[in-house]
Design a protein around this nucleic acid. Sequence first.
DNA 1: GCAAGGTC
Length: 694
Amino acid sequence: MIDLLILAEKASAAKHMAKAFGGTTGRMAGKTYKIVHAHGHLMAFKDPDKMVTTAAAKQRYSSWTDMQTMPWDQADFSWAKTYTKAYNAYTKKSKSTRADITAIKAEAANAQAILMATDNDPSGEGDLLGWEIINAIKWHKPVYRIRFADETPKSLNKALHQMVAITDQFKQGEYLKSDARSKWDFLSMQLTRISTYAARQAGYRVKVINQGRLKSVIVLKIWQQQQLIDNYVKTPYFEAKFKDPAGHIFARELKTDAQKQAARFADEKSGQTATARYTKSPVTNIKRVRKTQAPGALLDLAKLGSLLARQGFNPKEVLATYQKMYEAEIVSYPRTEDRKITQEQYNELLPVVDSIAAVIGVDQRLLTHRTLRSKHCASAAAHGANRPGIKVPQSLTELAKYGPSAQAIYKTLAANYLAILGEDYEFDRVTAQLQLYPTFKTGFNVPVKLNYKAIFDDAEQVLAKTKPLSTVVGPEAVPFMYQGANPKPTRPSADWIGKFLEKHNIGTGATRLSVQAQLTSGKNAFINEKRGFYTLTQPGTIAAVLVRDTWIGSPQITKQLFDHMDAVGQLNESPAVVVNSATKVVAHDLPLILNNSQALAQFVGKPAPTRTTKKYKAKPKVKGQYCDGQTVEFNATWSGHKFSAEERRKLLQGATITFEATSKYGKTYTATGALKQQTYKGKQFWGFKAAFGK
DNA sequence: GCAAGGTC
């Protein structure tokens, strides 16, 4: 018997704990222990029709076509969970998690208590997956919880001394809120059924039109942006500005629409007239101020994905390659939420920063900033921002075995990390104005010392390829007519969607990239991706048009969900209120989606005419009363033979008949048989059944 | 056939 069975979320966490506590089994703080681990969620909700008991309910919750069955009544559901299938990328096989549960159960049989040491995610997901396992093994003895700031030995040992008892899961806010979240998302599946039905009703032969609070928002946002681009009309304007001999532009700062209207003219002539009112003016009030800028935030996976998209790597490949590099401990944990690191994580990496620099060809003399800036420092960061691992590769070429993007991943990730060891970028801010017209101003930056920017330049993409202007301003500037235009809307891209999702706090670091990978791959892809730029496919356009003006397509829905989840987490609100709100969304969106299907023809073109192949042609039927009294319907023709009135009468009497049939190869043969109730693909039907072999 | 959230 051991005192504590320590349950870690995943293999890497278990490994770090073994390192911190002195082995997979052992004794620490006067207690014997053993470490086991899951791999994320081992349990998931059963299908809707498997969570209800009566035959009528089972029928209701399996329907994809009867809109009267929705919204679902969540009170009908048992919310029972079952094992999931875990996909192994190496064996390319899916395996049930049943074996993992059995193994943990066997270990628990020898333990006095379980210590839940899963991740401490802000969403409570670690608590949810921990309880799923504890419930699945039917554990009724004490449960303790630790929450660690990161997985370094120091933090893990510190957490161990702050162990708390959490024996009642229904009083634990973290569990309650993530449980409510998972039920909310589960109920949102109805919107996929509704959308699929709506598209088919409108005549589109679609597979599945997926909807959810990530998918719908992404697809709708891309569609709306595409509409803006399609409807964009370039409207030129003409405005008076000044230019000095070096080419610096002096202009008025136009903030409000009124200011813009007063200074900009739609026709060239008015622009010329306005410009002609000005004369050459001396430049005055030239100021040079030395300024500094600290390195930017560290990367998360979505940001890394979008940086690499510009180099032609797709999210799916980047995810897979990163995962392999993580398993080899060359890079840190991929699915992190963190954009910061703890002091411990910083200290851990410090001894190897010079060798990392050598591998990616960064000048080690630039790495002089050996304290962690507060802007990059978090008091708790379970995994910390995406960064290089403690294991440093010998060279970049050695990384090629992990995948096409491996070298690019390491170079980008390492350079971004090393930048925080560089000194602040130094530049001069130069400003000046015109003596005669002081509202006309200019301003630009002159680099003094690149410092961290020589390691990783976060603003790289913004820099134009034009030659920088001379830093000499003035001594005078002449008026000229500037021709501008209203800006063209940005093309949807991985980067752009990433920023949008982050702004609205939709999805987590892990799901933001994985849902984009999902939407851009497979036969039923909703998004075409090319070098990071997005366009919608036909099913993608259908999905978007269907959720116009709906709640599921609005980023506000996630905001509301999260606000309510926080209240549940604080035990200030009943979880049922959160779950109920999903039903309200379905009730609100159902008629809108059905109505939106009428707009499909306008935006995605008319559906292709239905194929009239033999396979889909309805066969003529015969109806009558069978000898047992029930009314039956069966095909009027069987294997090229049309039953005569006499044969039909006999068949309904239950008699055996014999006739000449024609095979599909044109050969005639004698068939003997009777009318029978049969099953085809799980569906029952009545029809002639030949007694072959006679 | 359905979600989003973990995981490999």
